[in-house]
Design a protein around this nucleic acid. Structure first.
Lengths: 138, 138
DNA sequence: TACTGTATTGCAACATTGTTGCAAAATATT
DNA sequence: AATATTTTGCAACAATGTTGCAATACAGTA
């Protein structure tokens, strides 16, 4: 587990620091998406707020995590299995937000269908967010 | 034009005030989605920031406008033609965000396909946001 | 139109979230 | 182990959003 965080950081030419290791571990352990606030909570007072912001920014730039559009305007980040490790972008799976518990899931096995856009519009990314009740709240 | 704003407000049992009329007009005139900041800009120093927040909240509650999930974590609101006037909820059309100019469009005529969720998950709403280049920037 | 109860607005103060510059500390390189 | 580079934490700031309350505007009725 720890090994894979170091591996991932190295793979993206990032220096190995405590905050990066811990934050990346949080993502690997969590099966759902994390908001900045979640990370602040889970890592205790260990890291400065600013460090968390910068770490998340770096991870997004490097393609380790990606942001998820949400209906309630909270930024959430997710690391999505193999895809992320290999640095691909993750515009092909559906996200699910539970209205009850707020948990956000990456439904890696549900793919986003092709959308026919009006003339003059070209797509580079498609995000699909389904809201409702998750498996825990149903 | 003015008439229809008053009509809409009455239809939703809202009292007719200057801020509500002006903000609703902004939405009717704008063919794209608006962020809080856009409204502040377009209405000058006419209204208090707090009034704008509260007006938007009220409009969302009444089903006059709806929020759009965005990839860049800015809250945007849109009034979507006939649908909104009749008070339906707008979970059935695609939104488009231009990466270049930032404009957000409601593609009312592009519908969101049905998504097959894993067992235990139930959907109440589906939001689909396509990013790319819009007709003006292409 | 004037009167009265109710809803809305603007102000002030505050809370939360995110950003920037810079010195101190940690990491990578030799 | 020594040095160059990167990252961190702090402080200060900026932007965004929220709440309570008195003043004002609106809606309904005479």
């Amino acid at each position: 587990m720890l090994y894979s965080t170091i591996e991932t950081l190295k793979k993206h030419q990032l220096s190995i620091t405590d905050s990066r290791k811990k934050i990346l571990e949080l993502f690997i352990r969590s099966k759902s998406a994390l908001a900045h606030a979640d990370i602040e909570t889970h890592s205790g007072t260990e890291f400065d707020r600013v460090t968390i912001y910068r770490t998340l920014q770096t991870f997004v730039e490097k393609g380790i995590i990606h942001t998820i559009p949400t209906t309630d305007n909270s930024v959430r980040y997710a690391l999505c299995k193999e895809d992320c490790v290999s640095g691909h972008h993750h515009d092909d799976h559906v996200h699910f937000m539970c209205d009850e518990c707020g948990t956000t899931y990456c439904l890696d096995h549900v793919t986003v269908p092709k959308i026919n856009l009006p003339g003059g519009f070209t797509a580079t990314q498609t995000d699909l967010v389904v809201s409702g009740k998750c498996i825990k709240c149903n």
